[in-house]
Design a protein around this nucleic acid. Structure first.
Length: 339
DNA sequence: AGGATCCCCCGCCAGA
DNA sequence: AGTCTGGCGGGGGATC
């Protein structure tokens, strides 16, 4: 994994949009595109995130399943999904989700036009896994940064050399387009969208309902050495839990390593293997996530938020916040503060 | 904004 | 042979 590329190629906000918050305009009308061969799991992700009653998270969506060939379409797992809408449903969609339809899916001219029109109207388009090929064939990814499942990156690069392909990340957001990698990364990308459009509290609420970790960052590696954590991996879980409940205290990596009963070196190594990031980076991300919630809640100065989250000063918080969120704490608060 | 200092963290390697 | 550990060094990022 080229870490340099991974890190800087996936800011969580689109380049050029720093300071322009919210990054994604709040949306309501969501359309999921299906056709023959659609992946059942990835079809299920937008259904779960946007198709359920999310009013307990303060969200309301109008959810539609559309297809260029309305009616029953055959999912990859053998059963059928019935699309009640045709491409006309894309005409007023604010978010269009394209799950995996296979790398050889043929994008019809009407579909390409509908996708282009959606983007032209200001809609957001999100792909999962090989759904990136649909966007690419429709010409939506030209000159843009994008990603897909690791096993398809070579193929996508070969077919579309004009795409700035970012391998080995969970998702990439570039302007109106969000592309995500295989299967579960679609959940991370969806939660990212919720956060970018509706704030951290909404994203946390949805994540809690889904019983998934709040949100992994887009820049995280697709490869984690132990995706299914063996018994020995329990060694990290307690220390991470402990760290989360002590974010306000000054924590250094050596302290965490000692709590995990490992040497510094082994701790660093295991940490990267199991989480895909480094201890210090992880700490900073968690602290920024905590700052999100406090900033949204209001009632604390930025300096107080910084202290509460364990940043030495407002200046330090500000520096990390700008780097990771692409905007300043104050403007983030202005964008998401309840009125 | 710049500079001094601190501390990550990752390649390397020897030892278990 | 192969795997895992943990000490060391230093470059560079983070902090003040």
């Amino acid at each position: 994994v080229d870490r340099t590329l991974t890190r800087e190629a996936t800011p969580e906000l689109a380049p050029g949009e720093a300071g322009a918050v919210p990054v994604v305009a709040p949306f309501r009308r969501v359309v999921v595109l299906v056709d023959h061969g659609v992946s059942a799991f990835e079809f299920g992700i937008p259904c779960e995130v946007f198709g359920l009653d999310r009013r307990d998270a303060g969200l309301e969506f109008e959810f539609k399943v559309a297809s260029p060939t309305p009616g029953p379409v055959r999912a990859s797992a053998g059963f059928e999904v019935v699309a009640h809408h045709g491409l006309a449903a894309l005409a007023d969609a604010e978010l269009v989700v394209v799950p995996a339809l296979g790398v050889d899916y043929r994008v019809s001219p009407p579909l390409a036009r509908a996708l282009h029109d959606a983007v032209g109207r200001g809609a957001t388009v999100m792909s999962l896994c090989s759904g990136a090929f649909v966007l690419a064939d429709a010409g939506l990814l030209q000159g843009r940064r994008a990603t897909t499942h690791w096993k398809y990156t070579d193929l996508l690069r070969a077919r579309h050399p004009d795409i700035e392909l970012v391998p080995d990340v969970l998702y990439v957001h570039d302007g109106p387009i969000l592309t995500s990698a295989g299967t579960a990364a679609g959940i991370d990308g969806s939660l990212y969208l919720i956060r970018a459009a509706f704030g951290a509290q909404a994203a946390v609420a949805v994540a809690r309902r889904m019983v998934v970790p709040p949100q992994r960052d887009g820049g995280q590696a697709q490869f984690v050495a132990t995706p299914v954590r063996p018994v020995s991996a329990d060694s990290l879980a307690p220390v991470l839990d402990w760290a989360l409940s002590h974010l306000g205290d000054p924590l250094d990596v050596a302290t965490l390593a000692r709590r995990a009963r490992m040497s510094d070196r082994t701790f660093a190594r295991r940490f990267r293997d199991e989480t895909g990031t480094t201890p210090h980076q992880w700490l900073v991300r968690q602290r920024v996530a905590m700052a999100d919630t406090l900033l949204e809640r209001g009632g604390m100065s930025v300096e107080q938020v910084a202290q509460t989250c364990g940043f030495g000063s407002a200046a330090v918080l500000r520096q990390h916040f700008v780097r990771i969120r692409g905007t300043t704490p104050t403007s983030y608060r202005r964008a998401f503060a309840p009125h």
